[in-house]
Amino acid sequence: MYSNPKLPEGINTSKEHPLKEFSILLIGALALIVIVTFALGFFGSYLAGKIPYSAELKIASLYDPPDNNDSSKSEQALHAYLQQLADKIARAEHLPEAMKITVHYLDGDTVNAFATLGGNIILYRGLLEKLSTENALSMLLAHEIAHVKYRHPIKSLGRGVAAGIAIAAITGSTHSNALGETGLLTTLHYSRKMEQQSDEEAMRVLYKLYGHINGGAQLFKEFQKMREQQDLGESPALFSSHPLDQQRIDNFKRMATLNQWKTTGELTPLPDFFSIKKTEE
C-alpha cells in the first residue's frame, strides 16, 4: 500500500541548453547597455548645453593651460599672430562678449588641433607646418572657434559624463571616475554632426573674411594625405567621428555650389616667421 515509485527526470528543470539561454540574455543585456548609454549620453549632452558659459570657464580653470613657458622670440611673435587672427575670426563668427578665445601653441610633432573647455584652442606645430596659406589657417581656426561657439566641448563632456555614469551604474563598478581623464590637453570626442556644423560655420567665415573660399579645403587634404602616409587606412564611416576626409572635401564643394561662394581667388600668404619655423626642422 505504501511505495515510492521512480519518478521521471526533467520535470522540475528546464530542458533548454544553458548556453543558448545565456547567449540570448547576453546579447539582450549588451543591447540594453548600448541603448541606455546612448540615451543618457544624448540627455547629458543636451543638459550640458544649458550650462552657462561662466560655469564652463570655472570648470576649465581647474586645469592648467598647456603653454610653453620658455618660448623663444619667434614663437612669441607667432603666438601673437595666431591670437590676433583668432580674435578676428571670433568677431566674424559673432561670438558673445563673454566667450574669449585663447590660442595655445604647442611645439609638438602631432598633426592636430582642437578646441576644449573655456574657449581654449590648442594648435600643434605639426599641423601648422603643413598649412601653406593664411586661408587654410583661418579655416582651421574658424572650425575650432565654431566648436566653442556651439558649445561643443561642454556638450561632449556632458555626454561623456552621463554615459560614464550609465556604464558605472550597469556594471556596478564603484571606482570609476565620472569625469574621466578630462583635462585641457585631452581631445574631446565630437560627434560627426558637430564636426559638420563647425565645418560649415568655418566656410561661412572664410567667405566673409576673404570674399572667396579658395585654400580652405587644404586642411582636409592635408589630413587625408597624412592618413594615407600613415597607411592606417580610413576607419569605416560609422565608427569615425570626423566625417571621412573625402566626405569633408565633397561637403566643402557641395556647400560652395549651394551658397554660390567663389572657389577661386587670391591666396593670402602666411607671414615670414612661419617659414622660419619650417626651415628650423
Partner: peptide, 22 residues
C-alpha cells in the same frame, strides 16, 4: 559562476531563472 552570471542577466529582463532550477 556561470549560472550566477546567467541568473544576474535574467534578473535584468525577468522571467524563469532556469539556472537555479537544477
Amino acid at each position: 559562476y556561470f549560472k550566477t552570471f546567467a541568473a544576474g542577466l535574467r534578473n535584468l529582463f525577468g522571467g524563469k531563472v532556469s539556472s537555479y532550477e537544477t
